[in-house]
Design a protein around this nucleic acid. Structure first.
Lengths: 220, 220
DNA sequence: AAATAAATTTAGATTTGACTAAATTTATTT
DNA sequence: AAATAAATTTAGTCAAATCTAAATTTATTT
């Protein structure tokens, strides 16, 4: 089955919002899609017809199993194209999103599977996000503590070891949370502390002890 | 300026039809675009507004200079993507057209220029058609006589040397004309005759003398 | 040069996706 | 628990691109 670009964008947006909250509100969707709540309501009715999502008036939506599968295949396309743009066409990882937003709607499955192969079946896109396989399954990325990450690699905090209030206090102060994207800029051999830089923030220095409690997804 | 996929398809179709006849009829366009004449009339009015074409009711259309430029940039995208699909993703040259029909509408100019570079600035697509450069200029392909073409290369007859009635008679019989696409399947060293195969036809054998009078576009 | 045929355009609908404004439902206060 | 606020839906429009059927223009015959 083929879906319009607009429908695909709704499906993808719902998928991403469901990671925050089990069910997604009309308003949240309208905001994510840069459209109006009334338009969202209209579209949800159509997508419900097609059994892509469960929708009860006034009570938000969630994707069905079918819907999730569709979302994952769109995300697969998006991330493979991003990988292509960065690795083969020398784009910066911060300039590929918009182009991939267009490319992700190209329909040929054969194309995307061959692209995957051509790229060497990468497991992560340039932003560090996992790339679903041809069946829509997310690969399990290996967890690594931040102190073992190479410099200048973009990684995402996916877990925090040892949830003590003391650690939480420090995370609060440094503004590090699950989902934060950051790069290790420098490693100081004197005390093994690290200079890291979060998106839109000035670089900060953290101890090796803190870094050992921060898990990121990284390969090799 | 950006145009809808539908408008781009009209522009491209008009460009191709103009190679046959200076001005293009509503019916011919409707046929090429698999749509109805009434729909074509509607669209032509809109494209005229945008100064992409000259259109006089009941008297057909032709592209303006601007329109031709747009057409050439779409064709550039189409052919570069086809080249990518065949050379990098191992598609056959006969299965890439439809996918390229979608890819040609991706808007980023930077993307297409980098793709061009990545591919080594090819001058011809897998069907032997010339690829316009970033400014929309067609490269001048070198003319070569058919007897010098390597086997299994798809080439197009672009000129006929020596227009005698005798040659014409033979061309008629063998169904070779300007625009014909063919591949040289085998060269017989005994008399230097060639086995060639035109699209949708059984292979035939032609003399070296005939081959020397058929010019095709080929590189290297 | 009138009559017929073919091509083209107009008029009026339809579909998709979006919008505004008004109405309704749910959530939050007092 | 009534009153207010916030979220959501409904109703009625709109634009893009298409369609069918009818009207008009151009081309071709006789």
């Amino acid at each position: 089955m083929k879906y319009s670009t607009s429908k695909e964008n709704y499906i993808k947006a719902i998928y991403h919002l469901q990671k925050q909250s089990e069910t997604v509100s009309t308003n949240a969707l309208a905001h994510a899609l840069q459209t109006k709540p009334a338009s969202v309501t209209d579209m949800l009715k159509k997508l419900k017809e097609q059994k892509i999502l469960q929708y009860e008036k006034y009570h938000g939506v969630k994707l069905t199993t079918d819907g999730k599968k569709i979302a994952l295949l769109i995300i697969r396309k998006h991330r493979l194209w991003e990988y292509f743009l960065v690795e083969k066409l020398q784009f910066g990882w911060d300039e590929v999103h918009e182009i991939a937003e267009e490319l992700e709607h190209i329909s040929s499955k054969k194309l995307i599977d061959r692209l995957d192969n051509f790229l060497g079946n990468p497991k992560k896109d340039p932003h560090g996000d996992p790339i679903p396989d041809a069946n829509g399954k997310m690969p399990l990325l290996q967890l690594v503590t931040l102190d073992r990450v190479e410099t200048d690699r973009l990684v995402e905090i996916v877990a925090i070891g040892n949830q003590t209030p003391e650690l939480m206090e420090l995370l609060q102060r440094t503004n590090i949370k699950i989902g934060s994207r950051l790069e290790v800029k420098k490693k100081f051999s004197f005390d093994n502390s690290l200079e890291i830089k979060l998106r839109n923030a000035v670089p900060i220095i953290i101890s090796q002890f803190l870094a050992k409690n921060l898990y990121v997804n990284d390969e090799e």
